[in-house]
Amino acid sequence: MATGGRRGAAAAPLLVAVAALLLGAAGHLYPGEVCPGMDIRNNLTRLHELENCSVIEGHLQILLMFKTRPEDFRDLSFPKLIMITDYLLLFRVYGLESLKDLFPNLTVIRGSRLFFNYALVIFEMVHLKELGLYNLMNITRGSVRIEKNNELCYLATIDWSRILDSVEDNYIVLNKDDNEECGDICPGTAKGKTNCPATVINGQFVERCWTHSHCQKVCPTICKSHGCTAEGLCCHSECLGNCSQPDDPTKCVACRNFYLDGRCVETCPPPYYHFQDWRCVNFSFCQDLHHKCKNSRRQGCHQYVIHNNKCIPECPSGYTMNSSNLLCTPCLGPCPKVCHLLEGEKTIDSVTSAQELRGCTVINGSLIINIRGGNNLAAELEANLGLIEEISGYLKIRRSYALVSLSFFRKLRLIRGETLEIGNYSFYALDNQNLRQLWDWSKHNLTITQGKLFFHYNPKLCLSEIHKMEEVSGTKGRQERNDIALKTNGDQASCENELLKFSYIRTSFDKI
Rank of each mutant, 00 (worst) to 15 (best):
F275P: 00
C255A: 01
T194C: 02
K148I: 01
C196E: 14
V144F: 02
E97F: 15
I84T: 00
E147Q: 14
G142I: 02
R298H: 02
L164M: 14
L332M: 13
C53Q: 00
V265S: 04
T68S: 09
S77G: 07
Y272S: 01
D159R: 06
G32D: 13
V218Y: 06
I109E: 00
C153P: 00
D277E: 11
C311A: 01
K294L: 03
P187S: 08
A198Y: 04
Q216H: 10
Y273V: 09
L81D: 00
D86K: 01
S166V: 11
K310P: 01
L164D: 15
E124Q: 13
P79C: 02
I222Q: 07
D39S: 09
Q276N: 11
P270K: 03
E266W: 15
H48C: 02
G188V: 07
S317A: 05
G232D: 15
N308L: 07
L50F: 05
V55I: 13
N42H: 08
G95H: 14
T107C: 05
T320K: 03
M125P: 01
Y134T: 02
R256D: 04
L44M: 07
P36I: 06
G132V: 01
Q303P: 13
A190D: 12
E147M: 13
P269Y: 00
M125V: 02
F123L: 12
L64R: 05
R92Q: 08
N117G: 13
S237L: 06
I82D: 04
V93R: 00
D261R: 01
R297G: 10
D72S: 07
W278Y: 03
L131A: 13
D39T: 08
V265N: 00
R279F: 14
Y118R: 02
V55R: 01
Q276S: 12
L326C: 03
L289D: 02
P220C: 03
L136D: 01
Y273A: 04
Y304E: 01
S323C: 04
V218L: 12
H236S: 10
V200C: 09
R46L: 07
H214V: 13
L81H: 00
H302Q: 14
C235F: 00
N202S: 12
R162K: 15
P313V: 03
K129Y: 08
N309W: 08
C235R: 00
G300D: 12
R41P: 15
N170F: 10
P246T: 03
Y304V: 04
E238L: 04
L106G: 00
E33H: 09
I146N: 01
C252M: 03
G232W: 04
G232A: 07
H214E: 06
T189K: 04
N170S: 09
G142R: 01
R256P: 01
M137Y: 10
L289W: 02
W278V: 03
R41H: 01
E207H: 15
K217F: 14
L63P: 00
R69Q: 12
C243A: 00
I109G: 00
I146L: 13
N242H: 08
M137F: 05
F115G: 00
R141N: 14
L106H: 02
I62A: 01
S323E: 14
W160R: 15
V218G: 11
K176S: 08
C215K: 11
L29F: 01
L128C: 02
G132T: 02
Q216N: 03
C186Q: 01
T85L: 07
C315N: 00
N309I: 02
L326V: 06
L289M: 15
S237N: 14
R162S: 06
E180T: 07
A119N: 02
N202C: 06
S143T: 04
S161K: 05
M65L: 06
I122S: 04
T199M: 04
N52P: 13
C223L: 02
L96V: 10
H290Y: 13
N309K: 04
R92S: 06
N105E: 03
Q287A: 15
C234E: 03
C234T: 02
R74T: 14
R208S: 15
G37N: 14
C209K: 13
P336C: 01
V93I: 03
H214I: 08
